[in-house]
Design a protein around this nucleic acid. Structure first.
Lengths: 112, 112
DNA sequence: AGATAATGATCCATATATAAAACATAAAGC
DNA sequence: GCTTTATGTTTTATATATGGATCATTATCT
């Protein structure tokens, strides 16, 4: 009771969530799949699917991605076959980067 | 007490989540941002950020996308400026599609 | 137009994610 | 090598998302 601190979102992420929801809904209808049907296959409730299609920020990432995959919405515009490659590529990149980020104690002489 | 029904995920969505997490972590380190720093700016706890970077399916979509936006990971490989256009485009598409999907009562004569 | 099925919306109980704190480990910079 | 800061990990209390059920509305198909 008494909502304490509603979370806020940047315009970009809000729009991204809205878009993802609409893409999912469009894909589902194009494939002539019923909400009930998709929800069952994804192992979620119809209510949650509705919220996902609305772009509700409070949905689980897993449920959302699962539904997206189910109706054929490509995340990152990346093909299923190449996903692994991208993961490895990112891991390689990470291996080269420092393991932790250290903040400068003294401010750098930005100007002067 | 007694986990009842662990949710399952398809390979594609699992990999997509893993990739997103790694992309976020790589981007954060590249930008020399501390975990604490990013968490604070996103309005989440450091623990949650860690789970996001691990690709944990149980994170909120909103928190995940917000962090992604914060460190500059592009969702859908779409620019911030064109996101709105894509939304409208999808809305137009949706307008042309049926509002609801009706299941065939009788099975269609698929062959013969 | 009528019948039927899908979707939209709301409510409640419960499972569970989240924040916060504390501690251990590891890495960065001098 | 030493110091300091970041990250990894665990625990606990609390906020909250989720599933399920129900009802209203709307769209599809005959």
């Amino acid at each position: 009771m008494a909502k304490v601190s509603a979370r806020t979102y940047s315009r970009y992420s809000r729009e991204a969530m809205t878009l993802l929801g609409k893409l999912i809904r469009a894909a589902r209808i194009e494939r002539k799949m019923t909400a009930q049907e998709v929800a069952e296959r994804a192992g979620i409730s119809r209510g949650l699917l509705q919220r996902i299609e609305k772009g509700d920020p409070k949905c689980e990432l897993g449920a959302t991605f699962e539904v997206a995959a189910l109706v054929g919405v490509k995340l990152f515009d990346i093909e299923a076959t190449t996903l692994n490659g991208h993961i490895r590529q990112t891991e390689d990149k990470l291996a080269l980067l420092p393991k932790s980020v250290r903040k400068k104690v003294k401010v750098v002489d930005d100007d002067f």
